[in-house]
Simulated scan of single mutants.
Amino acid sequence: MKKKFLASWLAILSATSLLITGCGSQQGAAGNTPAQADGRQIVLKAGNNQVADYPHSKIIHHFAKRVGELSNNRIKVEVFDSSSLGQEEELFQAMRVGSLDMGKIITSVAGKAVPSFQAFDLPYLFKDREHMFSVLNGPVGEKMLKELEEKAGVKGLIWMDQGTRNLYTVDKPVKAPADMKGLKIRVIKSPIMVDTINAMGGAATPMAYGDLYSSFKQKIVDGAENSADSVYYSKHHEVVKYFSMTEHFRTPCLFMISMKTWNKLSPEDQKLVLAAAKEASEWGKDLYQDEVDKLMGEIQKSGLQVIKDVDVEAFKKSVQPVYEKHQNQIGADLIKSIQQATN
């Protein structure tokens, strides 16, 4: 793990070195002052863990394009896709210390530095996609972004849809909590997510995502939980039979900028970056859902059975102890304000 982190850190430093030595340009990361009125180009680097044609990546590239257009190419955002600058945790830490200008993470990563962000890991927190975006783009979301700036040193620019996480299993269909009994379900190593799967009736089994395909084949686990696009791109539909629409998690992603970089930009350039972010958010707001709808059709063609008649209300009832356990750390008032927010 240390070797992997060192390799990613060296990649970030190498990219920074290349950008600094570019003719007639100045880098925005820590230790370098962006050009303002002297006409030299400001170059900002953005890390992304997804491939270039993934919905989130398309939004980031559109943002980079609009920054260039709005600034008459005086500001250039260079996007590094496919985890070339590290995984999300590494990108987040690099932004915090100022060695990376921009990056995209799932909000679970930020929860380690800002406990309120752990709210997004709670099961059935949002009623639907519209409710989620009304919270994120409303007063509650604005307050949380301010807290992110103060506690983590990064500024949120674009909220992104990550869809819902659903259960998928090798041999046994799941429609209700009783069906989960005895099933070993792979989960992210998140205390809330582990507690959720256990409360739903399964046996939560934290495991590296890359080990999951072989673990299905070897019967080490009986199932997992994730979004339809992850199932498709990881080819898990080749080794499981059932995909149950439990929709138990709806955890957003966030594209952000290091406050160290942000504070070096002029007020005019800050407004420009915010304008580009707003345009990119609106431009790409339906990209993820459109992709999921398409891929759901593809995995069904492969023979994966999608189970829609799930007793969601029973699952919601089963996870109430998760709220009771974690609400003090997250903030009971915050959870209540999210749940009561109107679309």
Rank of each mutant, 00 (worst) to 15 (best):
T196A: 12
T196I: 14
I197R: 08
I197M: 09
I197Y: 07
I197T: 11
A199N: 12
A199K: 00
A199D: 11
A199H: 06
M200S: 13
M200V: 08
M200Y: 03
M200K: 10
G201E: 00
G201W: 01
G201N: 13
G201P: 02
G202Y: 10
G202C: 10
G202V: 06
A203R: 09
A203W: 06
A203L: 13
A204G: 13
A204Y: 05
T205I: 08
T205M: 14
T205Q: 03
T205E: 07
T205F: 06
P206T: 05
P206Y: 10
P206A: 08
P206M: 15
P206E: 10
M207T: 11
M207Y: 09
M207I: 04
A208W: 06
A208F: 14
Y209H: 13
G210H: 04
G210V: 14
G210K: 11
D211K: 06
D211G: 11
D211W: 00
L212C: 06
L212T: 04
L212G: 04
L212I: 08
Y213F: 12
Y213P: 02
Y213E: 00
Y213H: 02
Y213K: 00
S214I: 05
S215E: 05
S215T: 09
S215L: 10
S215R: 02
S215I: 11
F216L: 13
F216P: 02
F216V: 01
F216E: 00
K217I: 14
Q218I: 04
Q218T: 15
Q218D: 13
K219M: 13
K219Q: 15
K219W: 12
K219V: 07
K219D: 11
K219H: 14
I220A: 05
I220C: 00
I220N: 13
I220D: 02
I220S: 03
V221F: 07
V221W: 11
V221R: 04
D222P: 10
G223Y: 04
G223H: 08
G223E: 13
A224Q: 03
A224Y: 06
A224K: 03
A224C: 06
E225Q: 11
E225N: 11
E225W: 09
N226Y: 09
N226G: 07
N226P: 03
N226C: 05
S227N: 05
S227K: 02
S227H: 01
S227L: 04
